[in-house]
Amino acid sequence: MGRCDAALRPLTGWSVREVLAGVEGEHPPVDRVDVVQPALFAMGVGLAAVWRSLGVEPAAVVGHSQGEVVAAVVSGALSLEQGALVVAARSQAVLACAGQGGMALIERPVAEVEERLAPFGEALSVAAVNTAGSTIISGEANAIEEIVAQLSAEGVYARKINVDYASHNAQMDPLLPGLAERFADLKPGGPEVAFYSTVTDEVVAGPELDGGYWCRNLRQPVRFDRALERL
C-alpha cells in the first residue's frame, strides 16, 4: 500500500493510504470517481501482494473494466507506476463527465437487453456482459431511470449503479484523444502470469497493453463473460 501511495501521490496530489485509513486530510470527497478508482486500484494491488505473501500465486488474472489495470500490474505486464498513471489519468478524465450519465445492472442475457435498448436509440448502450444472464448498460441518466423503472415494473431485476457517468459508452469518446496522449509512452512488458483480456477476448502477450488498449478498455463493452469462458 505504501508503494501504491508513492506511485499515485504525484499524479493525484493526495494520499490514497490516508483515504483508505479514513484519515482526515487534504483530499477530494471520498465518493468522487477520481478518488474511488485510485483507491480501488491500491486495494486490489495490495490484496494481491498479501495473498502472494501467504503463498497464494495466481495461475491467471482477469479484471473488470478498471480492474484490468490491477490485473495488468499483478501479471507483471505493467509496472506499478504505469498502472498508477493509467488509473489516475482515467479517473481524472471521467470526472469531467460526472453528472452527465449513469449505469445500471440488468439480470438478463445481453441479446434480450439489446432488444430492450433499441427504442432508446443512442441514449443507451451495453456497457458490460458479466455472465450469460447478467448485463450492464450505460448512457443518459434520464434514459437509465426510465428503463430501470420499466423493467422493475415487469419483475425483472434491474437497479442503478451508484455512479453519475457512463463508462463504456459514447460519452467517453471526447476523453480518448487526451488519454491517448497521456498514455503515449507506455511500454508494457510480457506478463509473468497469464492475462485474460475482456477487451480482445484473448490471452495477451503483453505489448498489446499499450496506451491504445487502455482507451479501448474505457470505451468498449467489457466482455467479462468471454474471459470467464476462456478461463
Rank of each mutant, 00 (worst) to 15 (best):
Gly25Glu: 03
Val56Arg: 08
Ser138Thr: 04
Asp185Gly: 03
Ala42Thr: 01
Ser65Ile: 07
Ile136Lys: 04
Glu18Met: 07
Ala96Trp: 07
Met103Val: 11
Leu8Arg: 01
Asp173Trp: 03
Ala104Pro: 01
Ala39Cys: 13
Gly63Thr: 06
Pro38Met: 09
Leu231His: 04
Val110Thr: 12
Leu209Gly: 02
Arg182Ala: 08
Arg17Gly: 14
Asp201Ser: 15
Val70Asn: 01
Arg3Pro: 01
Val23Trp: 06
Val204Phe: 10
Gln66Trp: 08
Glu208Ser: 13
Ala184Lys: 12
Val62Trp: 08
Leu218Lys: 11
Val16Cys: 12
Arg223Asp: 09
Val113Ala: 08
Pro119His: 03
Arg9Asp: 06
Ser197Lys: 12
Val222His: 09
Leu179Asn: 00
Ala128Ile: 02
Ala180Val: 08
Ala6Leu: 09
Leu186Trp: 01
Ala153Pro: 06
Asp173Pro: 01
Leu95Tyr: 04
Asp34Phe: 09
Ala39Gly: 02
Gly121Tyr: 13
Trp14Phe: 15
Ala149Val: 06
Ile137Val: 13
Ala72His: 04
Glu107Lys: 04
Leu179Pro: 01
Ser15Cys: 10
Pro10Ile: 06
Pro207Phe: 09
Glu24Asp: 15
Glu68Lys: 04
Val126Gln: 00
Glu140Gln: 14
Gly99Ile: 08
Gly55Thr: 06
Ser197Asp: 09
Thr200Asn: 04
